[in-house]
């Protein structure tokens, strides 16, 4: 392909989805206007945009705890998830005692357990962060474990043959080999961490964008709900993008 063709192919990849999104929003706008759908049911995208613009300083203030708690939940999940995976992969006893339980926990609809966290930890930030960790750390464990155990059998044999300690084998072979897998877990974890915080905000009802959505719903403020959701999308996208950026750096070093 020539450079011009490449640029065109690239532009297509970006423009086509944007065009689709634009068409959907346009159809939505038209439907609301032509059908005279009341704002209380479904406001037009333009109305949402105006509302977002008007309330932006206020919404941004609400976004601060949501974002910080998401980052905190994600960070704790990362450390805890990787540590647990290392433990499970390193010790047979830990693996046999813990792994079936980890798999079982994966299967419970974890959101159903959210009220328990309020009972145990109250309605403050620790409760939401803990719940966020609870929601988001399983994917990190599973992905890290996959990475740590994916190392070629012969390579592990070589490690033993050259007289390397178990610790050295982790530091120099198993852990670096797991890095690409870990990031695939972290990309899931960052989205799950945000879901955890929002659900926490729904039920603790103190502050944050999750709380704003609930509050706006109680006031039948549809445009405000959608404006809050739009802001959540932007924050989610930025956080996800940050993890992808870290992944790019890590894969340059540890990718195959």
């Amino acid at each position: 392909m020539t450079r011009a063709q490449l640029t065109r192919a690239h532009a297509r990849q970006v423009l086509l989805p944007l065009l689709t999104a634009g068409l959907i929003l346009g159809a939505w706008e038209a439907a609301v206007r032509i059908g005279e759908i009341p704002d209380i049911l479904l406001p037009a995208p333009s109305a949402v945009a105006i509302r977002l613009y008007e309330t932006l300083p206020f919404l941004l203030k609400q976004a601060v705890p949501t974002t910080l708690e998401t980052i905190a939940g994600f960070a704790i999940s990362t450390v805890l998830g990787i540590a647990l995976a290392v433990l499970v992969s390193a010790s047979r006893l830990a693996r046999e005692a813990l792994y079936p339980n980890i798999v079982f926990f994966q299967l419970i609809p974890k959101i159903a357990l959210a009220p328990l966290f309020i009972v145990w930890l109250g309605i403050g930030s620790p409760s939401r962060v803990t719940f966020s960790v609870f929601i988001s750390f399983f994917p990190v464990v599973v992905a890290t474990l996959t990475g740590l155990t994916s190392v070629d059998r012969d390579l592990l044999r070589l490690c033993r043959a050259v007289g390397g300690s178990g610790w050295k084998t982790y530091a120099q072979v198993r852990f670096p080999a797991a890095v690409p897998h870990i990031f695939s877990g972290l990309k899931i974890a960052i989205t799950f961490a945000m879901i955890g915080v929002i659900v926490g905000e729904f039920i603790t009802a103190q502050a944050g964008l999750g709380y704003m959505i609930l509050f706006a719903a109680s006031q039948a403020e549809m445009a405000l709900i959608l404006a809050s959701i739009a802001l959540l999308c932007v924050i989610g996208l930025l956080l996800y993008g940050a993890v992808v950026a870290m992944e790019r750096v890590a894969l340059k070093r540890y990718g195959a």
């Binding site: 044999r157 070589l158 033993r160 043959a161 050259v162 120099q172 540890y254 990718g255």
Partner: peptide
């Protein structure tokens, strides 16, 4: 394990990083 043995396998088993 024989530290004094050099080993080769079917797969080169190199560290890609």
């Amino acid at each position: 394990p024989q530290v004094d043995a050099g080993m080769m396998f079917q797969d080169p088993t190199l560290l890609p990083w």
